[in-house]
């Protein structure tokens, strides 16, 4: 396929109106033609607005329940195929946990209802009750979940003031995920490296992967006992050993790992 042939069917490509065979041929051409890729992007940016023209319709709440039930079903199958007994902290199924949450919510709601009933029921109280129940429901749903993440913000230092991101620890998976946006583009063999700091002593947690301006890093293990997490700019391509050699470009403070869980 040449540029002229692609141009002719570019509208159909943007609208997903090609056959599989035509799409494959077009993809091969696009992979080696930045000019046609740019032209296609112009048409795509219009097509991407089409969903905004659709009247909003709400699906049945059962859809979400069915999705979550299927996920739980798959997780159970996976667990039984691995023949591993559930850890005590994971022993309750997702639905049992949800049921637990509902009971706790119901208990809190009952307390709220009783308190308000004692104070006398008026229309204004009803509104207040709704707000309190909604708040309690949100709190119980998030605080009660064993999956609730512990999230800390990362901020750019003077070397990269537009940088910002998040450090998230997932207790169930025992995985920490670092996501940083707005770091300056890397030059040459330079790399971004992550560090955990305990009393100013750094421990490397590896190099960040940078893709489309988003830098990410995953590592196994909790953050307990560490004071902060830093991202440094290193000469690379290998990670620096023992201590950062380059400037720290982003920093996040880690307090008690449970203090900021949701």
């Amino acid at each position: 396929m040449n540029c002229q042939e692609f141009e002719e069917l570019s509208g159909a490509y943007a609208l997903d109106a090609l056959t599989e065979e035509e799409r494959r041929a077009a993809d091969e051409h696009l992979a080696q033609c930045p000019k046609c890729s740019r032209a296609l992007q112009q048409l795509r940016s219009v097509v991407e607005l089409f969903p905004l023209t659709v009247p909003p319709v709400e699906p049945s709440p059962r859809v979400k329940e069915r999705i979550l039930a299927r996920i739980e079903e798959q997780a159970q199958q996976q667990r039984s195929s691995q023949m591993q007994p559930a850890l005590p902290s994971q022993a309750g199924s997702y639905w049992q946990q949800r049921a637990g949450k509902r009971w706790r919510w119901a208990a809190l709601a009952a307390v709220a209802v009783l308190l308000l009933a004692l104070l006398g029921g008026t229309f204004a109280w009803n509104i207040s009750l709704q707000q309190q129940l909604s708040h309690l429901q949100q709190q119980v749903a998030l605080l009660g979940s064993p999956e609730a993440p512990v999230v800390y913000p990362l901020r750019g230092t003077a070397q990269a003031s537009s940088a910002h991101g998040e450090v998230m620890y997932f207790p169930r998976q025992q995985v920490t995920v670092v996501v940083v946006y707005g770091l300056p583009p890397l030059e040459g063999s330079h790399v971004y490296q992550g560090w955990l700091l305990r009393h100013q002593h750094p421990t490397s947690i590896g190099l960040l992967t940078v893709e489309n301006g988003v830098a990410t890093l995953n590592f196994q293990g909790p953050l307990t006992g560490y004071d902060s997490l830093a991202i440094s700019l290193e000469n690379g391509p290998q990670p620096s050993r023992e201590v950062p050699k380059g400037p720290v470009v982003a920093l996040g403070t880690l307090i008690n790992s449970r203090a900021n869980s949701y």
Binding site: R155, M168, L254
Partner: peptide
């Protein structure tokens, strides 16, 4: 929040889970 290096020991600002980005 403040765009600067936070002091070790300071309590980090609260990030509501609802504000996590789609990518996250």
């Amino acid at each position: 929040g403040q765009a600067s290096g936070s002091l070790p020991g300071a309590r980090p600002p609260h990030i509501p889970v609802e504000e996590l980005s789609d990518e996250t």
